[in-house]
Nucleic acid binder design. Structure first.
Lengths: 241, 241
DNA sequence: TTGATTTAAGGGCGTTAAGCCAATAAGTGG
DNA sequence: CCACTTATTGGCTTAACGCCCTTAAATCAA
């Protein structure tokens, strides 16, 4: 194999633009469930540009460590949260001359869902990485176009919540249908009919009862889990658990 | 603004991986309607690797000419077909260490739909760029992972055909509902009910009659066109006409 | 001219899914 | 045991979908 730099020198003969490559990075919109609200994982930037601004956890492909851009995304998330997300999906790629004040820049954005209790809050990171309620974001100025990216990720999540049950990845291993319904209501910002929602879950065939029941106030609810071996969601996604 | 190379030198201080960037390109799956079959635009590669193989029209971002990766996609399509497509949509980004035999490589793939009659077949290009029926592809060996990419683009198009009317971009300015239905049947590979299809078109509110009618065998059909000012499709796409 | 043929467009109806409201079930806390 | 809370299900209304058949409006062949 020819080394990357030699390769570019070679290509330069044919196509001058092949040499001057734009910067390529990966960014992640990592979402979890806070107290009654969606939260997004942000990191404080230590370098310019946007030094000391909060921004999405991401970074550059490591040609040695990473086999694919999905690996890059997962690696960066793991560095910040300590775990692999329950669901990750490619959102879109944004590349233009204006999003980075310095120069042309390209980023492939991934949306990841993760159960809050699965995150290990490493103390040393807590000042550099933090969860923010999405409602707080309007009062914050994030790095680059990250505010807009988060909005697009939330829109995609709303779409998913309307015609899929992907948001279950925000809950843990097991959950009740009421909990899942509340998550959907939170994402969609409106109440859903319990009967209709239960029908959706049953007809999907993606879930099964664990046999366990909740305890506490009110009638106990049945716990459900993702049916094992199910190719759970009809989307391009990477299941990591 | 600091130049790109200086920028990379600067970044290198903080993150060594920032310097060694993978190659980034844009590829296009340009689809049109042939005689009773979908056709995809391919170009014969003049350089290694995969020299003399057919592959997707694409290339590298030109930092001077292009304002965004969408511009890159449209520019490359225009170079090959002479026109801008009626519909273009970002499909996905594939980046890994194996798709290019030489080295790490990333490509953002766009799917474009274009009416065949709007393409200007430039004679000088005809040996280098050609339309191929999608059924022919199984007998061909394309460059890189382009065969797989085309399959994914066709799957996306099938998805679109089931819950949207995006495929109308494969027809010209005006078309009858029967023509549109036949396109959908071609994409989906199955017959559709005329009544159901007409209802879908009407309920969408995206189309209007032109007032003109067809002539020829059988009862004349009403011509329809995309309603102007309609934010026609609920997807991330770039309308160029 | 007339009828056969062809394609377009719409009417009618049974089946299925969605939406809505209320009843019932099964716990906890006094 | 009763009040309260939450879960789950029953049943009805309404809308959408699928299917078939009729009608409309042209061409084509005698």
């Amino acid at each position: 194999m020819i080394s990357a730099m030699n390769e570019r020198e070679f290509l330069k003969q044919y196509d001058k633009s092949a040499f001057e490559q734009p910067m390529f990075s990966v960014d992640n919109v990592v979402l979890t469930l806070g107290k009654g609200e969606l939260e997004v994982l942000l990191v404080k930037r230590g370098e310019h540009p946007f030094k000391d601004c909060w921004g999405l956890p991401g970074g550059f492909v490591d040609l040695e460590k990473d086999q694919s851009i999905e690996s890059t995304a997962l690696r960066k998330i793991k560095e910040k949260t300590g775990v692999e997300p329950d669901y990750i999906e490619q959102l879109e790629t944004i590349g233009n001359a204006t999003r980075d004040p310095r120069d042309w820049s390209i980023t492939t954005v991934f949306t990841a869902l993760i159960a809050k209790q699965r995150c290990t809050p490493t103390d040393e990171n807590v000042v550099l990485a933090n969860w923010f309620a999405v409602s707080e974001l309007s009062a914050m100025t994030l790095a680059f176009d990250h505010t807009k990216i988060i909005q697009r990720a939330l829109k995609r999540l709303r779409d998913r919540a309307t015609y899929s049950l992907v948001p279950c990845a925000l809950l843990g291993e097991k959950f009740t249908l009421s909990e899942l319904q509340k998550v959907h209501e939170l994402i969609l910002g409106k109440k859903l009919e319990a009967k209709v929602f239960r029908r959706r879950v049953e007809n999907s065939g993606q879930f099964e009862e664990t046999g366990e029941m909740t305890s506490g106030r009110g009638r106990p609810a049945a716990y459900y889990r993702l049916r094992s071996g199910t190719d759970a969601f009809n989307f391009e996604f990477i299941r990591t658990v």
